[in-house]
Amino acid sequence: MEESKSRHALALSALLLALFLGGWQLAISGGGGPVPDMDPEYAALMGDIAKGGSALPSPLDVAKEMWRHISDPFYDKGPNDKGIGIQLAYSLTRVLIGFLIATLVAIPLGFLIGMSPLFYRALDPFIQILKPISPLAWMPLALYTIKDSDISSVFVIFICSIWPMLMNTAFGVASVRRDWLNVAKTLEVGRLRTAFRVILPAAAPTIMTGMRIALAIAWLVIVAAEMLVGGTGVGYFVWNEWNNLSITNIICAILFIGLVGMALDQALHGLSKLVTYTE
């Protein structure tokens, strides 16, 4: 029963994809024909779009370009032209460093906030103000003060991914069932031991959810940050192709960004399975 259901879902996914690609192809071919009466010498100086070509590539164009990127992902032709694999690796490194630092700060701090109502109230206004700030608003400040564009991008990742983890950790810790804490108290378990043996496992699923949200945000942010700062990374790749108005490459980059984002999420999903429990 379970198997046939997933088979049905797969078939439906494939159907939706086929419909989408078909619609795309149809929309492209609907474009106007060649512009008549263009002087050939003048036409030689103009691009395809001005000559009546479609502004959007066909699915086949994108597939071809994707294949070109996948078949040679690690070429390095100088500082401004590297393969998509290298660009993704740059972005991933930045995201993971920023995310790791955010985790190291957010989880202990979240614990503290969750365990102490006083801290919770004292820090709450700061968190509420800092949480909704767009990552890109931090960028000029970071560039100016840190004076290094690489560290600035990592800082922006850090500052944006810390809030969901902090909130979720605090919430998870605060909402551990009273009964369990009371049992621990009755058994005269030390505070530290209670934290590690009772609260941490109990709050772990909530913390993991916070981490998943944070990682997704970090991956969203890095593309924007790299578009702003340039140099390396998949965000720079998008910007560089925007510069060239190459929609084909931008679509490729969108697909790559989506695939990597999904892989990151699946990895954390796998991890969170390890810590879930049923009451």
Partner: peptide, 12 residues
């Protein structure tokens, strides 16, 4: 030679 996104970034 490093490509830069704009002059504000280049200045910084």
């Amino acid at each position: 030679i490093i490509k830069t996104a704009g002059w504000a970034v280049s200045r910084d």
